[in-house]
Amino acid sequence: MTPILATVNYSEPWWIQIIKALVIFAVGLQLIPLVLLAERKMLGRFQGRYGPNRVGPFGVMQPLADIIKLATKESFRPRTSVGFIFMAAPAISIITAVATLAIVPFGNTVDIFGTKVGLYGVDPSIGILYAFAFGGIAFYGLMLGGWASGSKYSFLGAMRSAAQLISYEISQGLALVGVVMLAGSLSLTEIVDAQATQGWFIVPQIVGFVVFLVAGFAETNRAPFDLPEADAELVGGYITEYGGGGFTSFFFAEYLNVIVVSAITVTVYLGGWLLPFGWHTPGLAMPFIVIGKTCLLIFLFIWVRATLPRLRYDQLMSLGWKILLPIATINTLATAVMVVT
């Protein structure tokens, strides 16, 4: 019988699979408040102020204070909203963000108490396409959320984010084709293994890396591409009518997406769990290396947000279509020539 699902390279007994999924999810969940706090502290420093420093030592309890505040808000939706979709849309955003976390490889298979365990959620042979598939569904979260609010600001924000996401998804996909050609595989662990022999892909694929990163900023609705939530013109974009829980969900999903995009960039271009200069990576140190590199990239996200002004919408569209798309295509063809010859 032809299998319906893509083959998985390695899988453990079911109980290990459940435990490791829970552990990775817990780690991902812990990273979100850290990133949130780091962003606010660093933005403060970038702008010559302190950032949050009142709640707990050095303001470290600030995310907790935020979540308590958001949780104790009144449950509310505008009378123009389409109830069920209005409630479901933030959940769609979260589900897709969490599901994408499953393919981030934090390491290769290692021995833990005599059992071989893969330090990733799941390693399907389609790897990257899994991330793109859920990225495509994530778009429904924003779109339905904005539409179901019944407010024109929400609706315009949703339309904008929809057009932005699909425009940049093409460049992002094309940028990765070069990596897939070099590695000869879509599986993220095999891409890292290929980098062990060929060197990190950021060297031959520097153009692809830049395109992927710029598209990644746009895909996660981060500055300077945070047009959907451009507060000067669209109030809050697609989250205008959301408060409390819905707002929390969208922000949770946004920060988780930043983490996942950074982690995938690390895996694909920056050698994943490999150390530079050919140093050997000890098995259980792999997750720390991946998380360390991911944190550096997240710092880049924050740095860019503090530095660059927001683009105008027509500039955003022409950057995506007239600059990134041709560059990504030429990069793909050049890589193809390089691989074949």
Partner: peptide, 16 residues
């Protein structure tokens, strides 16, 4: 072999 992915989907649903 896709069990972790399903667990992640369920966890996402729980959080949402």
């Amino acid at each position: 072999s896709y069990l972790p992915a399903i667990v992640f989907l369920l966890l996402g649903g729980v959080v949402g």
